[in-house]
Design a binder for these strands. Structure first.
Lengths: 241, 241
DNA sequence: CCAAAAGTGTTAAAGTTACACCCATGT
DNA sequence: ACATGGGTGTAACTTTAACACTTTTGG
């Protein structure tokens, strides 16, 4: 925001969008919520699978837009949501399929779009398979992602690196993705998928049970073909050390 | 980037800028480079002290804009530069002084400006007091910042929190701010100012001298009124473990 | 010889790693 | 009885935290 002598070059026509990397854990795999246009006859003309997002409205706060999108998709508003980073390279929209899709969707020539990516950690439940502004939203395993539109694959991989940092600096945040009652196995699977390698079962349990914010319940798995695992819950109040 | 049924509301007039939080260390204090319009008769009409930055040009990559700004100000291009986060709240530009300044600087009514903040760590030298597009750039102690325009104070404080995380996850990055030859005291002062508390001298030295990338030189301080401190240098090659 | 900062070591406590066997349950 | 995953302990090692005196140099 500095004075510039050549105003004619300034890009007053740049558009700003918000795209949300909504992560969840279904008890087995780390997943991301992607949206696909719910056409009756899906065409091959454009890459249809995307991060849920949209252009900002005039004077809309990007944070508000992200909350809106995430609340619409998940049906509740009690999720961890945080702005991650902006992606604004002019050639993030260079694939002809994507250009075609944009012009069709926005009904207007688009110069370029700077997107602000958000990271959200949510608890997967049946409400989170939803229709969203003419799109179906579905959970995909982050380890088996198909090709996505724009630079959305890149955005997701950057967010996943960030998540690794989060798992060491703010490990309590990961409980946003676990069910209200979870087993040690579930905790460990989530952790392993985030850090990208297996961890020792005994050491992991020892560590977990030492945390004041992980509290054991008098409740065990039902009807499993092996010794039933105990359930635990997360007690946020005990998190502050 | 989702299809939206009401295109009329979309903010095609949103502007995007880049603002740079350029941090350095002068041997005593952590500092940030701020710019002030170099008017002969500085007025009281607007908050003149700002982060260096400017609006994006058409189709300009925000990363490129940040590199340009930082290279112009520092005279070299060998700095650590990283995008930090976008700031896009509509009321980040609400102070009447700031609005006045913007309209004067840009010669045009401004809807709102989403800024992409960059974080850069640089080595302070005499080249980094420079004139930049009609502005003087000067180093300010981050512990004694005056009032800044827009939400720039807020942006700096968010970057400083990030820097604390960097100091644990990527401690080698801090050497970008230290001189080529530095003493243990300088390292420690920088570290203390980043984490916000004093650290034990003996433990700090022990830790530092254990790192393979901190190598002692056969060189000591000159002409100090006490035992001379040894100089060390940073050897990046040994950093990858 | 005084002031000022540099440099240096030990111990206790806490945390981390590596590693293997028996238990509970359903089929 | 067997297959499946659940649950548990110990010892070596590494890391961290607390703590105080002697050395060098210039004035």
């Amino acid at each position: 925001m500095q004075k510039d002598n050549t105003n004619k070059n300034i890009s007053f026509d740049t558009n700003v969008s918000v795209d949300c990397v909504i992560l969840g854990f279904d008890g087995e795999s780390l997943k991301v919520l992607l949206s696909r246009q719910s056409d009756e006859n899906p065409s091959e003309k454009y890459n249809d699978l995307k991060l849920p997002g949209r252009l900002l409205h005039a004077y809309e706060d990007p944070d508000d837009a992200a909350y809106d999108i995430i609340n619409q998709l998940t049906g509740t508003s009690h999720h961890y949501v945080r702005q991650f980073r902006a992606f604004g390279s002019p050639d993030r929209i260079k694939n002809p399929k994507d250009v075609l899709w944009l012009e069709n969707a926005i009904k207007q020539k688009i110069g370029r779009i700077v997107t602000i990516a958000y990271l959200s950690l949510v608890r997967i439940n049946n409400r989170t398979h939803r229709t969203f502004a003419g799109h179906d939203a579905t959970w995909y395993k982050v380890s088996e992602l198909p090709e996505l539109a724009f630079d959305h694959s890149h955005i997701i991989s950057e967010v996943l690196k960030e998540l690794e940092g989060i798992s060491t600096l703010q490990p309590q945040l990961l409980f946003e993705m676990l069910p209200a009652k979870f087993t040690l196995l579930q905790m460990r699977l989530l952790h392993e998928q985030i850090v990208g390698h297996k961890v020792d079962v005994r050491n992991f349990s020892k560590l977990a049970l030492k945390k004041p914010y992980i509290v054991p319940l008098q409740e065990w798995e039902q009807g499993v073909a092996h010794r039933a695992a105990r359930y635990y819950k997360f007690k946020a109040a005990k998190a502050k050390k």
